[in-house]
Design a protein around this nucleic acid. Sequence first.
DNA 1: AAACGCCTTGGTCGATCGCCCAGGGCGTAC
DNA 2: GTACGCCCTGGGCGATCGACCAAGGCGTTT
Lengths: 192, 192
Amino acid sequence: MPGPKAADQGREVRGRLLRVAAELIAERGWSAVSTRVLAERAGVTPGLVHYHFSSVHALLTEAAIGTMRGLVEGLGPLLEQAGTAEEALDLMLAALDEHDGRDPMSLLFAETYLAATRDETLRRSLAEVVTAFRDRLSRRLAAQGVAAPDQTAAVVAAAIDGLMLHRAFTPGLTAPAVAPVLRRLLDGRALT
Amino acid sequence: MPGPKAADQGREVRGRLLRVAAELIAERGWSAVSTRVLAERAGVTPGLVHYHFSSVHALLTEAAIGTMRGLVEGLGPLLEQAGTAEEALDLMLAALDEHDGRDPMSLLFAETYLAATRDETLRRSLAEVVTAFRDRLSRRLAAQGVAAPDQTAAVVAAAIDGLMLHRAFTPGLTAPAVAPVLRRLLDGRALT
DNA sequence: AAACGCCTTGGTCGATCGCCCAGGGCGTAC
DNA sequence: GTACGCCCTGGGCGATCGACCAAGGCGTTT
């Protein structure tokens, strides 16, 4: 058996590289994250990056998907606690208020969306994460009698993402401003 | 006076570089468009790029803003012709149907949004283009008695953009599927 | 003590990057 | 016919890129 002490340190460094990668994707953009900058910020030498990961792209993929999955799965339980559909929407609006389109998490999402259009593997992983969240939201809406819950959940999720993108260059787009409009999306109770 | 013939050819090459740049932003991503690839596809030598433009970034900015402005201003008159708010929404849905999140135009928009978060000048130009369109849509909605037209227009525009992004990895998100849900956004006529 | 295994270092490879510049082609104005 | 102005070429600068590899540190197992 190899030394467990060294193995622990190795895992720690690997995790640090993943966290740094998520930061740098947001700061510099997916394709501008380089081996050397990653290593420097993680406090290791460049060679280590290709020891722990098969390529920079693989590191970025694991970092992005892992971070996004963590956030989405953290949001899930909160969604279950929401009594009404309006409360569920309020939860999404709170997320909108925390992210102005230029913060690390917003940028990580947007960068990953774009990178996914050019990489089949990433696209599948991303679809998994987003679909899982959308299904949770859909079930929540269905339980509240909202019509066409799947489509409604898809539109709400897309609208929140789109609003974050637009907020980056349209400051006035705050949660309180758009909340009344978004609430109309839940008004389809008597329809099909 | 210099030869008008040479000047015309120069303008032609400049325009070709702009068109090629818009293509490559979509194909490779904003920060992965290089001097040499631009020149090769435009059928000129690399040196010409820095003759017509001060930098690659300046070329990309002019190409992106120009293309987006062209599309948005082309959509404007169509919006004016729309009799009802529902018809205006149908126009947006038609745009959604033409773009699946992985076509050149969708990617150009998304890439420019992201690049704008890292460049003040680009951000301002982009805000100008998007705001102009949103104002047109807002006036159209206001004329139809939709409540909170500004906020509604902002949400509709953001939702369409967000849906395009999501369509890239969620194929089922077609215009017919989400149309009934989006139509609820226009139902705020009796409210504030 | 010797052998083993994992983590880590530091340097090097060829390729590519943005940008610059000396010089040639060519039509127009003197 | 000579000079001028614009367009364009091709080569070259230093910097940076992803990936690779030989060598060493070090705790664990024999």
